[in-house]
Simulated scan of single mutants.
Amino acid sequence: MPPLDPRAILAGRPTARPSAGTVVTIAVSSLCLVVALTIMLHDGATGVPAAVVLALVPLPLLLAGILALDRLEPEPPDALVAAFGWGAGVAVLLAMLLNTAGLDLVWAPMLGSELGTYAMAAITAPVVEEVLKGAVLVGLLWFRRSELNGPTDGIIYGSMVALGFAVVENISYYAFAPPGTLALTFTVRGIVSPLLHPLCTSLTGIGVAAAALRGPGRSRALPVLAGLAGAVALHAAWNASSALGLAGLGAAYLAGVGVLVALAVVLHRDRQRIVALIQTHLPQYQEVGVVTPADVWMLSSLHRRQRARERTRATRGRGPARALADYQQAATELAMLHRRHGLGLVPDDAFVARRDPLLLLMHHARAAFA
């Protein structure tokens, strides 16, 4: 028998290598990013190195926060990188071209330069940008639906594509900031409102994740459109608030805080749902020797999972600790698989074909750490 490849089993593919579609997405996104930065330089952007540094300053903290939400059922790194790259490359370049075309061809001739710019920011940009960011989420729904197991996954992917978009958009704002306003621009975009894009696109992500869990015969378009409408509305409210001064900004900020609190509630309930699935579906595998009541208890808490890995690393070494981490993820994937099967999203033969490798991985992992 060929050696067991935990990464391939967890990914549900014959090999752990990224798929051709993921590689193409990352390559195209990288090319689009280069073109977008070239356009900025051609249009007279100044201080681009400093703008890049300022745009990257909040990124590690924001990435750490998003990935911290993704610990119970981690998403594949290649899919996360592709989502981030799409936002930073494809979405940014197309938004740049479409927003500029809308301003030059519609709003400026109709309303003049100043009012036309405001109309573009408040009306055109939210629609264009949220549709372009959401496109990669719809791609996940179409090509990698099994990765979308609940609203947490939608929030993770939505936040990743939005962070990619926000970083490059901030480079543009900083590079074109009028003299003497760079510090203020950084304060507004990098400190006061770094979560604007992730909050907006997370709403689209929730809609896409809800569509992914709809059973056969039910329309998937409605939840996607509802999430996208929420994203556009929040984005438009923020952009339009600039015309109302501090009062408008405060109202938009409160709306953003309200969405953030709502997302926190959704994340908490989704984690409870996943724990309930683990406690419901895993005990049936006690008879085959891959799960014990103690394992179910350990798997039902992020804190207990981490403590178990730390103890195993301290007493057995890194290899068994890695095997325990694989066991934890495989067990969670197995619980998610049962839910999709129960919803009619996975046929019986596909369920068995996915279940058996996960059980095999759990068996081998237990032999390494138990």
Rank of each mutant, 00 (worst) to 15 (best):
H42G: 06
Q328W: 10
A20S: 12
R316Q: 10
A119Q: 00
A276Y: 03
L361W: 04
A177Y: 02
A350V: 08
L98N: 03
G44H: 00
L334Y: 07
P179N: 05
E73L: 13
V138C: 09
L199G: 06
T25D: 00
F143N: 14
H268L: 14
G319I: 14
M40C: 07
I123G: 10
A350Y: 01
L93C: 02
P2C: 06
L37W: 06
Y157Q: 07
R307L: 12
P320Y: 01
L324C: 04
E147V: 05
P14G: 14
V188C: 01
G258E: 14
W238Y: 15
A55E: 04
L182I: 15
A36W: 11
V53Q: 15
A294G: 12
Y173V: 02
A330I: 11
I9K: 06
E169N: 13
V52A: 05
S146V: 03
I39L: 05
Q272T: 15
W142M: 08
R309T: 03
H281R: 11
D295E: 06
G190H: 07
V346S: 04
A209N: 07
P18C: 12
I274A: 12
W297K: 13
L72Y: 07
I156G: 05
A55P: 01
L63C: 08
Q279F: 07
V346D: 02
E130A: 11
R220W: 08
Q279G: 12
G258D: 09
L244N: 14
L184Q: 11
V168H: 10
G258C: 04
W107K: 05
M120F: 00
V265M: 15
A276T: 15
V259H: 03
A240W: 09
G245H: 06
A45K: 01
G317S: 08
V291Q: 09
R17C: 08
I39R: 00
P3H: 03
L41A: 15
L41N: 10
Q306E: 11
T46P: 02
F84V: 09
P3W: 02
K133N: 09
S202W: 00
V352P: 04
T332L: 00
V168M: 15
P179K: 10
